[in-house]
Simulated assay, not measured.
Amino acid sequence: MKECESVGRYIGEIHRASCIYFSKQFNKFGIGSGQYLFLLNLYKNEGLTQEELTERLKLDKATTARAIKKLEDEGYVERVKKETDRRAYNLKLTEKANGIREDVYSIMNQWESRIKSCLNEEESDKLVELLEKLSNSSLIRKEVKNE
Rank of each mutant, 00 (worst) to 15 (best):
residue 46 E to F: 01
residue 80 V to C: 04
residue 28 K to V: 14
residue 74 E to N: 07
residue 100 I to Y: 02
residue 84 T to F: 03
residue 29 F to P: 05
residue 66 R to P: 03
residue 87 R to T: 12
residue 82 K to G: 11
residue 40 L to H: 06
residue 72 E to Q: 08
residue 36 Y to W: 09
residue 47 G to D: 13
residue 100 I to G: 03
residue 58 K to N: 12
residue 65 A to R: 06
residue 101 R to L: 01
residue 43 Y to H: 08
residue 60 D to I: 12
residue 90 N to C: 15
residue 47 G to E: 15
residue 112 E to N: 10
residue 84 T to W: 04
residue 106 S to D: 14
residue 63 T to E: 00
residue 84 T to N: 09
residue 113 S to A: 14
residue 96 K to G: 01
residue 88 A to K: 13
residue 36 Y to L: 09
residue 67 A to Y: 06
residue 43 Y to P: 03
residue 105 Y to L: 15
residue 85 D to P: 06
residue 73 D to R: 06
residue 43 Y to A: 10
residue 42 L to V: 13
residue 94 T to M: 00
residue 96 K to P: 00
residue 92 K to H: 04
residue 56 R to I: 00
residue 38 F to I: 05
residue 26 F to M: 15
residue 85 D to L: 10
residue 80 V to S: 05
residue 80 V to Y: 01
residue 73 D to F: 03
residue 100 I to F: 04
residue 87 R to E: 04
residue 57 L to Y: 05
residue 98 N to Y: 02
residue 100 I to D: 02
residue 35 Q to M: 01
residue 86 R to E: 14
residue 77 V to H: 05
residue 28 K to R: 11
residue 87 R to P: 01
residue 105 Y to T: 13
residue 78 E to D: 06
residue 78 E to K: 07
residue 35 Q to D: 01
residue 60 D to W: 09
residue 67 A to Q: 09
residue 106 S to A: 14
residue 70 K to T: 14
residue 95 E to Q: 13
residue 62 A to G: 10
residue 84 T to S: 14
residue 105 Y to R: 08
residue 85 D to Q: 08
residue 62 A to F: 11
residue 36 Y to C: 09
residue 89 Y to V: 00
residue 106 S to V: 13
residue 52 E to Q: 08
residue 103 D to K: 12
residue 44 K to E: 15
residue 108 M to S: 10
residue 40 L to N: 07
residue 43 Y to L: 10
residue 59 L to G: 10
residue 70 K to E: 13
residue 64 T to G: 01
residue 80 V to Q: 04
residue 43 Y to N: 08
residue 26 F to H: 10
residue 88 A to Y: 06
residue 103 D to Y: 09
residue 98 N to H: 03
residue 29 F to V: 08
residue 61 K to C: 09
residue 47 G to I: 14
residue 106 S to H: 14
residue 70 K to R: 13
residue 80 V to I: 13
residue 93 L to C: 11
residue 82 K to A: 14
residue 32 G to N: 05
residue 62 A to Q: 12
residue 62 A to I: 12
residue 77 V to G: 07
residue 47 G to R: 11
residue 75 G to R: 02
residue 55 E to N: 09
residue 63 T to A: 00
residue 81 K to F: 06
residue 36 Y to D: 09
residue 112 E to Q: 10
residue 30 G to M: 03
residue 53 L to V: 07
residue 55 E to S: 10
residue 97 A to C: 06
residue 106 S to G: 13
residue 95 E to K: 13
residue 51 E to G: 09
residue 74 E to K: 07
residue 45 N to I: 01
residue 102 E to K: 04
residue 87 R to V: 08
residue 59 L to S: 13
residue 65 A to P: 03
residue 71 L to G: 08
residue 92 K to Y: 01
residue 29 F to C: 05
residue 57 L to C: 08
residue 89 Y to P: 00
residue 42 L to K: 07
residue 65 A to D: 10
residue 105 Y to A: 07
residue 44 K to G: 15
residue 52 E to R: 03
residue 84 T to E: 11
residue 30 G to P: 02
residue 98 N to S: 04
residue 57 L to Q: 05
residue 111 W to T: 15
residue 61 K to Q: 14
residue 30 G to T: 04
residue 92 K to E: 05
residue 97 A to V: 11
